[in-house]
Design a protein around this nucleic acid. Structure first.
Length: 345
RNA sequence: GCACAGGUGGGUGAGUGGUUAAAGCCAACAGACUGUAAAUCUGUCCCUCUCAGGAGGUACGGAGGUUCGAAUCCUCCCCUGUGCA
């Protein structure tokens, strides 16, 4: 009897809390609150927050917050490097395992049972694809090939997007049916997958051993294993969210987003990937004289709002999300979120 | 007060007698998304009904008029901008 009880307790997989939601919904605040309460470490899931030197426009957690709670996958990539969903997922999974194995260092006067508890990993971020790559895995496709892509892009340039789409149709009809001809990046990736992925036994029969994307998809994904996942979704009223976004964007400009962009531009030119992301893109347009003082802010706010809308669409079909109708920095919402975590700990 | 320019759907802005419920762009809303994803793309977008192919109603500052037919031409009125007084 006693033994059975012990066994079930032991076999209970460690928990990972995921905090998701659109920009400016207060994910960071909620994640921090959870981390403080349960002894957690935060794993970032925002693609551009991974880049170093991009500070103001990325709304990264502050130095004080980072000193207080361990943060992972923030400031871990060189501005001119490329990140990818696959690379993110590999690293994040590794980190999740490490956090869970780490013993909790008691703050204050820790109770003896508290000592035994391991750290709670909290994944927090708004990049839907990265989150999916982490939790559900990606199909076993090849990494990207820059030369092939350049060649295909040039093709599209001279012969039109339909031409590329027809190439894909020949290689992989189901994939072509799924991807719109105008969606050039996705068409290119699909062609790339079809052309560069080969079966190990390609030497014997190169034709038949090449797998197209649909076939690779059918091989399935490799979801995250060994964890119980609890997804907390932040979902404030749309108009409140938009107002918050406008405010935050204005604050970014007040805090020197343009100066930061100027510095980054001087240092890296347009080689640094995130220079073309939300806020930075608009700041850059201002520096180039394409936008005036007044329109930069408006344009940046607009871009953030549009982004939030896309995130909401993405997260709506995320499975098993416990939705919280408000902002993550709202104490009432935090309490509600904690109450959902409590029984799972 | 005079002169010129102009008033078009949530915004901007084409259209200058008929295939025009009115291009394009933007916003808004909805959707897609399997290694550049803070990216990229799609759909809807005056109202009502629909057997989902369509049917009807209302609309281009206002009121009249010309015409088989007007956002488009004419008259008067109202409003906005610019210039001159």
């Amino acid at each position: 009897m006693e033994r059975a009880l012990k066994l079930t307790k032991v076999s209970r997989e460690p928990l990972v809390v995921v905090v998701l939601g659109p920009t400016a919904s207060g994910k960071t605040a909620l994640a921090l609150a959870i981390a403080r309460r349960f002894g957690g470490e935060i794993v970032n899931c925002d693609s551009v927050a991974m880049y170093r030197e991009f500070e103001i426009g990325t709304a990264k957690p502050s130095a004080a917050e980072r000193a207080e709670v361990a943060h992972h996958l923030v400031d871990c990539v060189d501005p001119v490097a490329d990140v990818s969903a696959g690379e993110y997922a590999r690293q994040a999974r590794q980190i999740l395992c490490e956090i869970v194995l780490r013993e909790n260092v008691p703050r204050e006067t820790a109770l003896s049972e508290k000592k035994l508890r391991r750290h709670l990993p909290i994944v927090s971020g708004g990049t839907g694809l990265y989150l999916r790559a982490l939790l559900e895995g990606l199909f076993p496709g090849p990494q990207r090939s820059e030369q092939l892509r350049n060649k295909l892009r040039a093709r599209a340039e001279e012969r039109g997007t339909d031409h590329l789409h027809r190439i894909l149709r020949r290689l992989d009809t189901p994939a072509a049916n799924r991807i719109h001809a105008n969606d050039v990046p996705k068409v290119i990736r699909a062609i790339e997958v079809c052309l560069t992925s080969r079966h190990p036994s390609r030497r014997t029969s190169p034709r038949t051993s090449r797998l197209n994307m649909t076939e690779l998809w059918q091989q399935g994904r490799e979801p995250l294993q060994g964890f119980r996942i609890l997804r907390l979704g932040l979902n404030p009223e749309r108009k409140d969210l938009y107002a918050r976004i406008n405010q935050r964007a204005a604050k970014m400009f007040d805090s020197g987003l343009i100066v930061e962009t100027e510095r980054l531009l001087a240092k890296y030119g347009d080689q640094a990937r995130p220079i073309s992301s939300l806020g930075y893109k608009q700041a850059l347009q201002f520096l180039r004289g394409e936008l005036d003082r007044e329109s930069v802010l408006a344009a940046a706010q607009q871009a953030h709002r549009n982004y939030a809308k896309r995130q909401i669409t993405w997260f709506r079909c995320e499975p098993d999300v416990r939705w919280l109708a408000g902002f993550g920095d709202d104490p009432a919402i935090q309490t509600e979120g904690m109450a959902m975590i409590e029984p799972e700990i």
